[in-house]
Design a binder for these strands. Sequence first.
DNA 1: TATAAGTTTTGACAAATGTCAAATAATGAA
DNA 2: TTCATTATTTGACATTTGTCAAAACTTATA
Lengths: 191, 191
Amino acid sequence: MESTQDRIKFILQQFCPVSDTTVHLIVPYLEKIQVKDKELIIKANIKCKYVYFINSGLVRSYYTGDGKEHTTWFGVEGDFVTSFYSMFTDQNGYENIQMLENSELFRLKMEDFKKLVKENVELNQFYIKVLELGYIYWEKRFMLLQIHSAKDRYHHFMETNKKAGVKIPLGILASYLGITQETLSRIRSEY
Amino acid sequence: MESTQDRIKFILQQFCPVSDTTVHLIVPYLEKIQVKDKELIIKANIKCKYVYFINSGLVRSYYTGDGKEHTTWFGVEGDFVTSFYSMFTDQNGYENIQMLENSELFRLKMEDFKKLVKENVELNQFYIKVLELGYIYWEKRFMLLQIHSAKDRYHHFMETNKKAGVKIPLGILASYLGITQETLSRIRSEY
DNA sequence: TATAAGTTTTGACAAATGTCAAATAATGAA
DNA sequence: TTCATTATTTGACATTTGTCAAAACTTATA
């Protein structure tokens, strides 16, 4: 079983280089938690208190609009998770973050995370990298929705998310792709 | 006529507080340029060499997909402009940035901008703010496209972009909204 | 001003996707 | 295992938006 130290170093390194000094700096602030399938770690309409790193498991982010749930993102091992809008503005967020299976996470108080980002150059770089990747994520996602058909979007998702794709329930995947579950069911049955 | 100093200070302050020291630091790197209606300042498939601040005018960003132009963003006075993907990755960008009227811009070499962001805390904060606003921009834009009809998206745009909205040619606005110009023409004629 | 070039509107029809309702299938708890 | 619950599939039809072609309008310029 790997130490928190090693796991966090591994996770941070996926984003940008970090020294052991920086890892030592952040570790005391981390708390390891287990969360069960279907539970929420972040709820809409409240200020988000933590940022998380996924040690293992699968999560999704979704918001509610016209009575339906719209999935915006899936998180897997190594991903950084929080309500970005709430983090940026210190106001209530609009997304819920829910486990799609039993998962293990590291969490870190939002205020501590912000303090560390201000004080430590490498964590500042980490934060910038998270923002840059997030920017690209949404820009790509927008372009896919704008110019590709439902069928293309489905196949593109399954191509680029081979592992997670098969574990995600149809209704949730449909809401991620921006289509109804009936349409997704029909797309799947065409093959 | 205001000095470059004053204008840049005003523009930067729209994002976050900056001291005169920081303004003095950045000004020597800036070059003021005039660009004519329809000209491109950033072209797809090459590395983007500059970042820009719009002093006056109106610009759009677009990319080409399935033979059509897809407008992604409109920039007005005070906006920060560049090819974000190219800036993040140092690779070729995919967007073109074009004047929609004669405009005056400040430009700054990409390498100088990156150096300043590394060296100066306030400009680091400025860069983070640009990224945070960009993230929110795309997330919102995605959500609008995912859950609202063409008509709703049009009205929402005209509401939130009163000044720019009326200056934008129908075909370009349609491509921003993700619909054909025929559909936008019909939406407009309904009132 | 006349002409050409570009932009917007209109019409007829096609394609993609949504809606609602019901039938089936899968899953989990007693 | 069995029942209840939840998830998925299927069918019939409605709605939204796209496509293609032509007409009308606007703008710039020779």
